[in-house]
Write a protein that binds this DNA or RNA. Structure first.
Lengths: 222, 222
DNA sequence: ATGAACATACCAACTAGTCGGTATGTGCAG
DNA sequence: CTGCACATACCGACTAGTTGGTATGTTCAT
């Protein structure tokens, strides 16, 4: 093997990602990861303190990559329109294109993997995963708040409700996409959500919201 | 230990369910399950051929329980109203009450666990999980088709799209519920979906659908 | 030659699975 | 009712293989 390969550490993370997304974290052994990466134990324990450390670093690495991508989508949408609703739609379309063009043999969300194997991880890792999902939600909250501030919704909804809804839809869509093997599933769900937005923020009937300056609509239903 | 306990087999399945929902399938050892159930190896291999067999039986057991519950919710809704839209709402409310009242320390969907650990299972088990999710979707498809047949939707949607959307929303809601530790999360998502239904099937503006007899609306968006 | 970047050999703990044993039933002949 | 034959239900020690982790190299750039 060629010594001093550019980034052995990254190769380990990439191999781990593939295998963890295929079988889950617990079912993936260190030796298996190293076999896929063409390395041995020495390399692994040189870069990681242990498997627990890999778990944390893997999710942190993903969090950085994902947040970066999200900020990019948001920036692109921002550059192309000043209308908050159009901005959300552009953002969602960019995301749909991303998950749709993926030739990933085992699609899904790394945070969902961790969440469903949560009790095998340290509390710090669990908190980290929850924080990433919260950050993800927050990006949507900001966008939806802008929309609600400008367009009165046809029903009383909060930006947070909409944000949590689209995150849920995407997470759920990825599960169905994995289970069915239907690649366009997640994109289809995102499009359905855009249908909901269309109905919520279409002008003609401003039936519920009478004061357009309201920041947050109290929408606690029975 | 008292011999000839009523249903040792069931005790094993119940203990397995709790642990698998906490940590995932691979991270749960047979000994651990047996420890929780107060049994030993002999009992396990008397009732199950091995861990793979447990995996299959566990998901089959769940499928029976869940489908049974769904049929019950559907029957109750059927008995209380003849209106298809009201029926869907009653069904969803029953489901929301179910996931909301749950004091489950590790909420979530067993099929999602299997889906995210899928490649460690035999193809037969993967197919089984997909089939259960498809059955689940089919129940919704029937209900939504009745709604669409009676009420013209404000936007062109198919019963299947709506069915897959609510399944996605619930699956995604369960992930957020687990990650955040917020029990009412899944119920909130279901309520948001009901908002969408309200907007889709409210009378006042029949803007897109002009012929109310249409059975399936072609809704392939770009 | 010194330390970073790996490889190799090895270990203790745990894993699924086996197997002989034992207690408790159940069916049946007398 | 008794006693024998046999099946069922379960125990617990055992094994072979795998696991995460360590200890000790070896190579190479500086």
């Amino acid at each position: 093997m060629t010594r001093k390969s550019p980034d052995t550490r990254l190769r380990i993370l990439q191999a781990a990602r593939v295998l963890v997304m295929e079988k889950g974290f617990a079912a993936t052994s260190i030796d298996e990861i190293l076999g896929a990466a063409g390395l041995t134990k020495g390399a692994f324990f040189h870069y990681f303190k242990g498997k627990k450390d890999l778990a944390r670093e893997l999710v942190e690495w993903h969090a950085r990559k994902d947040l970066e991508m999200f900020e990019r989508f948001a920036a692109e949408a921002e550059a192309r329109t000043s209308d908050p609703l159009e901005k959300v739609v552009l953002f969602l379309e960019a995301f749909e294109a991303y998950v749709g063009n993926s030739d990933d043999p085992s699609p899904g969300c790394m945070y969902a993997v961790y969440t469903y194997e949560s009790m095998q991880f340290e509390p710090a890792v669990r908190d980290l995963v929850a924080d990433v999902l919260r950050q993800w939600t927050s990006i949507y909250v900001r966008m939806f708040q802008d929309v609600i501030d400008r367009y009165p919704p046809a029903l009383p909804v909060t930006a947070r409700q909409l944000a949590e809804m689209i995150v849920s839809i995407i997470e759920g869509g990825l599960i169905l996409q994995r289970a069915y093997g239907e690649v366009p599933m997640t994109g289809r769900q995102s499009k359905q959500f855009r249908n909901y937005l269309t109905l919520l923020f279409s002008e003609p009937s401003s039936r519920v919201q009478t004061n357009p300056s309201a920041e947050t609509a109290a929408a606690a239903a029975a």
